[in-house]
Nucleic acid binder design. Structure first.
Lengths: 190, 190
DNA sequence: GTCTATATTTGGATAGAC
DNA sequence: GTCTATCCAAATATAGAC
């Protein structure tokens, strides 16, 4: 049907807009991401974008949701039959690598570093979903008490933020993950 | 002399400008900090501020330097005769509390979250000074190898960012510091 | 020192023609 | 769907009078 073709064309254009916005965020920073700049890259009139997104905030929301979705896909790709230690190591490695491979995405998802924007409730729920998924994975290897989960999030988010901010593209904090996990696991043994 | 009085008056006005800027950052976010908004709070004309600061960036630089200076003062207030464990606990506590007591300052100093601004080389050196000081404190209690320092910065910055972002004003991560330090210290013992 | 007035830039967003 | 033409709102910064 024609409507289906039109719909898919529309989706493709939306995807192109988002991809262009990511490109700008990566190369010029979040301060430059806006309807005007995106339109310029696409050689479109800024007003044309409003046929695809309600406005600048809606574009950011779509990117936020896409970023969270990508993270959830990565986590689902992890094997589920690993032992405790390997599970934590792989989870942390995936997370830190995910953050470091795209600092712009890291800033959007985890650092609230986008001027004048915060996620809509709908977009925010995609972040909550990921947190819940992390909790269930941790629960599966026997870590479910609040303080342990909080210590784990502090540890992994600290490794990620240091890696991104001070050694992007390297492995200065990435290679500390085994040590960090062993340290974390030993904390509970008397 | 008149010049000295004039100088001190000038310094006082500069201080008032900075204090007003902090107030705006805390209550309205960094996106609203600018010469216009500051001037409005002070009931001055925006152009008058240029007699005290070269511009918006210079104001941010001054705040960045002041924030780092405040942190260094806090660290210098710590007792120096503590044992290893107490030293790490107190250092971490001071740091996390410092971050949490003013999220706006935390964002400026550690999260590069101010749209369109980054510290001048001169301002940046005040941050480097603090890092070097932290290194020397850690060295005094026998922690001086790179990986240990990196793990320590990841751990403390992770605790701080989680505390600020997810439990500002509370103690959900603050109270994990003893556990975290014990975990950190035990990591090196066989 | 401080003001008024203004230049300049940069955004988001809308109306209406085609 | 896309464009042109605007509108409107911020924001930095400067010129020049008082």
């Amino acid at each position: 049907m024609a409507t289906a073709r039109v719909e898919s064309r529309r989706a493709a254009t939306r995807a192109t807009i988002i991809e262009t916005a990511w490109e700008i965020a990566r190369t010029q920073g979040w301060g430059r991401v806006g309807v005007r700049e995106i339109a310029a890259h696409l050689e479109m009139a800024p007003s044309s974008l409003y046929g695809y997104f309600a406005g600048n905030d809606a574009i950011h929301d779509a990117m936020f949701i896409a970023g969270n979705h990508e993270l959830s896909v990565r986590f689902e790709s992890l094997p589920t039959d690993l032992d405790r230690r390997s599970m934590l190591i792989e989870t942390a490695r995936h997370f830190v690598a995910f953050c470091d491979e795209d600092p712009a995405r890291f800033q959007l998802l985890f650092q609230h570093a986008v001027p004048g924007w915060e996620p809509s409730p709908d977009a925010y729920s995609s972040a909550v979903d990921n947190y819940e998924h992390m909790r269930s994975v941790m629960g599966r290897v026997g870590i479910s008490d609040g303080p342990s989960l909080d210590l784990w999030t502090a540890l992994t988010s600290g490794l990620a933020s240091q890696q991104v901010a001070n050694d992007h593209g390297g492995d200065r904090w990435l290679r500390l993950i085994e040590t960090a996990v062993d340290m974390f696991l030993r904390r509970e043994s008397t």
